[in-house]
Design a protein around this nucleic acid. Structure first.
Length: 698
DNA sequence: GGTACAGAGACT
DNA sequence: AGTCTCTGTACC
């Protein structure tokens, strides 16, 4: 955060520091949150014109801390920008805005080019072969933009009113006490304000489009991690007794990878006979048992996997310790112990003694000192972090522990603390960057002032970055002391086939696939994003709750009515109650526009209207995905919802818009009517259902 | 929503 | 063999 000595201009354009209203030319806009700052009041006045375009305000770009570790090269450009350059930027933006010959989409694109330092414009010079992929980004850039920064949303969050913003911009907005959508002034629910969750479908879409832009039209050789968790593992039960009492009492099951339990670093393709792709960043599992089966994090209860004399291989962020602090690319982790677990307890929220650097805590400290790569999984149980998945457990990649220390925790007892910083060659699941991490400067950790037992790495880290190879071992990984667990090589061929087929999809088709409804699995029509960041077709979601009243009337025997009770309506993908959202669900217009554009493009390209891109993403789905009746990354989530929807299909009148997408998305075998669109008159006049669509599109 | 409770496996 | 564990479920 900015110090008190660094404050931006307020909503009226008045500098909160000098209380003057600077001229437009004297203001500098943050590239991330687009908050205006008075240039002459900045602690670090700008230095060069080129960095004007990339300038981040003190709020968005934490100042580096002196770590005393010379090997920690910083690649974070801590913006120092020229004051005069800013005026040029503003003038350029003004010129774009004033250009009447440009459409809104073109203006957005131009702004983006300007703000991204001209990166996008490079695409314009690409040859015709790459035009198709460029179009994808154009469509995205023209469709999506955060209202604050006017760029493609970074870590996008979606309000219940269907508008998309960058996480940081959104947090800044609500941080100013605002509780209405910046675009339409609808109320922002308090939970959304305090715990915004990233809309992962948008992240994937934006990243894919960027990748498509930066690579040739041929898909890259490597299998990219688009969270298609195909060939999901068998259920974890083995023993009869375990089956009887369910998962509560089980954690066995086959291990799918050929890595020993003390394996450090990523799970590589060579260790994945089942799928031959390794465990990719962003893959997720229903629970810790499944996660365990892929060797990512072995213990099914404990948060730390490791050995005190050897090092720690992985950690889980599950919200079990209130001292934890998650910032995505870095987080502060709390050690284990300090709790009374007598009476056969697995955990205990109350801390009753100090933690020490022993056992697992010592294992983490060893990994810190050696600079070992540590795998990180985040669980939905972490409720305070925007970076946690809404459901299940997700692999977020490799981190390194840069420092560890002890401090007095929230509960008054000492806790072990670890600073984890991400260092993976794959981008994090929440960012639309197409590249992985670069070495970054360490964040300022205030609590270090009062820390004791501080340890940091003295030797060269075993896992480090170089420009040529990215993150990799600088020396041989520690020799495993355990035998490789038995892996099951069967189905290898089938899995490979599925991957090959998946790669054959065009970028656009893959992109469309990401926009499939979690209920019907088709490309979404009238997409809704719930407050818990799950995406559905409006008809599907409404259909799933058709016939259910929002409130339950209650009457006594005597006939006197009692106060009506609210009906809980759980999101088909997670346990969140979305009944409030369902009262007036708003279509994500930007998403809908994008889907339509992509479908139009695909249609134009193939010149075949009957089997469009959406079809490619569904009907010609790789056989492998269907083999066990479980489809796609969210397969387990959608089955119930789909059933519900089919039980209570809601009849709707067709519109050109809906039927067009419905057709492209493939027909519903079971219930052809379920994709039809509600009659316009049934909705409020402002409803996005009234969006007019070009009949020619159909 | 809160609480009691359990199997399994890894560490020591 | 004893200890520990950022789970998951049933039940109230």
């Amino acid at each position: 955060m900015a110090h008190a000595s660094e404050l931006p201009c307020d909503g009226d354009g008045v500098c909160m520091l000098c209380k003057k209203t600077p001229l437009e030319e004297e203001k500098l806009l943050c590239k991330t949150c687009v908050t205006p700052w008075h240039v002459s009041c900045l602690t670090h006045p700008p230095e060069s014109m080129s960095s004007v375009l990339q300038w981040e305000c003190p709020d968005c770009s934490p100042a580096p801390v002196d770590t005393g570790n010379a090997s920690q090269a910083s690649s974070v450009t801590n913006a120092n920008v020229v004051a005069g350059g800013n005026a040029n930027l503003i003038a350029a933006i003004r010129a774009i805005e004033a250009d009447k010959s440009l459409s809104d989409a073109e203006k957005a694109k131009k702004r983006q080019e300007l703000m991204s330092g001209g990166v996008v414009s490079e695409v314009d010079t690409e040859n015709g072969k790459e035009k198709g992929n460029k179009d994808v980004l154009d469509v995205l850039g023209g469709t999506f933009s955060c209202s604050f920064c006017m760029q493609l949303p970074e870590r996008p969050v979606t309000t219940p009113c269907g508008h998309n913003f960058c996480l940081k911009c959104f947090q800044k907005w609500v941080g100013q006490g605002k509780r209405t959508c910046a675009k339409c002034r609808s109320d922002i629910p308090s939970k959304m304000a305090s715990q915004p969750r990233i809309n992962s479908a948008l992240v994937v879409a934006i990243r894919m489009a960027r990748m498509a832009k930066s690579t040739s039209s041929v898909m890259p050789d490597k299998v990219y991690h688009f969270m298609h968790n195909q060939d999901r593992p068998d259920k974890a039960f083995t023993t009869e007794r375990a089956k009887k009492s369910g998962k509560a009492n089980a954690c066995s099951g086959k291990i799918f990878v050929t890595v020993p339990p003390d394996h450090f670093g990523p799970i590589l393709a060579e260790n994945d006979p089942e799928r031959n792709q390794g465990v990719l960043v962003g893959e997720f599992w229903e629970d810790r048992m499944e996660c365990r089966q892929w060797g990512v994090h072995l213990p099914h209860v404990a948060g730390i996997a490791g050995q005190s004399d050897y090092g720690a291989q992985s950690v889980a962020l599950s919200g079990g310790y209130e001292d934890d602090e998650d910032h995505g690319e870095w987080f502060l982790y709390t050690g284990s112990g300090g709790r009374d677990l007598s009476g056969n307890k697995r955990t205990n929220k109350e801390q009753s003694f100090d933690q020490k650097f022993d056992k697992m805590n010592e294992a983490l400290r060893v990994s810190c000192k050696k600079g070992y790569p540590v795998r990180v999984v985040r669980s939905h149980k972490e409720k305070r972090s925007s970076y946690a998945p809404e459901s299940g457990v997700r692999y977020d990649g490799i981190y390194r522990i840069e420092k560890c220390w002890r401090k007095v925790g929230i509960q008054g007892y000492k806790v072990c603390r670890y600073l984890f910083v991400r260092c993976d060659n794959e981008p994090a699941p929440w960012t639309s960057d197409e590249h992985g991490d670069r070495p970054r400067s360490l964040p300022v950790i205030k609590e270090l002032k009062n820390a004791t037992d501080v340890s940091e790495r003295k030797e060269t880290p075993a896992w480090d970055y170089d420009e040529e190879h990215g993150w990799r071992w600088t020396r041989a990984p520690p020799i495993s002391r355990k035998a490789v667990q038995k892996a099951n090589p069967e189905d290898r061929q089938r899995a490979r086939k599925a991957i090959r087929q998946a790669q054959n999809f065009s970028v656009r088709e893959r992109l469309l696939k990401e926009f499939s409804c979690l209920i019907c699995r088709k490309v979404m029509t009238l997409p809704l994003t719930t407050p818990c960041a799950h995406n559905f077709c409006k008809p599907c979601l409404e259909g799933a709750f058709a016939g259910q009243a929002f409130v339950r009337e209650r009457t006594r025997e005597g006939g006197r009515s009692l106060r009506a009770r609210k009906n809980v309506m759980k999101c088909p993908s997670c346990p969140t109650d979305i009944s409030d959202f369902l009262q007036n669900p708003q279509v994500n217009r930007e998403l809908m526009d994008l889907i339509e554009s992509l479908q139009r493009q695909s249609k134009d390209e193939t010149g075949d209207s009957s089997e469009g891109a959406a079809d490619g993403s569904e009907d010609s789905k790789p056989e492998g995905e269907d083999d066990n009746g479980e489809l796609g990354p969210e397969g387990r989530d959608t089955v119930d919802g789909g059933d519900k929807e089919l039980q209570t299909p809601r009849k709707r009148k067709k519109t050109e818009n809906g039927s067009c997408i419905g057709k492209e998305g493939g027909k519903l075998k079971e219930s052809p009517d379920s994709h039809e669109i509600v009659e316009a008159g049934n909705d409020s006049p402002s409803s996005p259902l009234h969006v007019r669509s070009d009949p020619e599109d159909c």
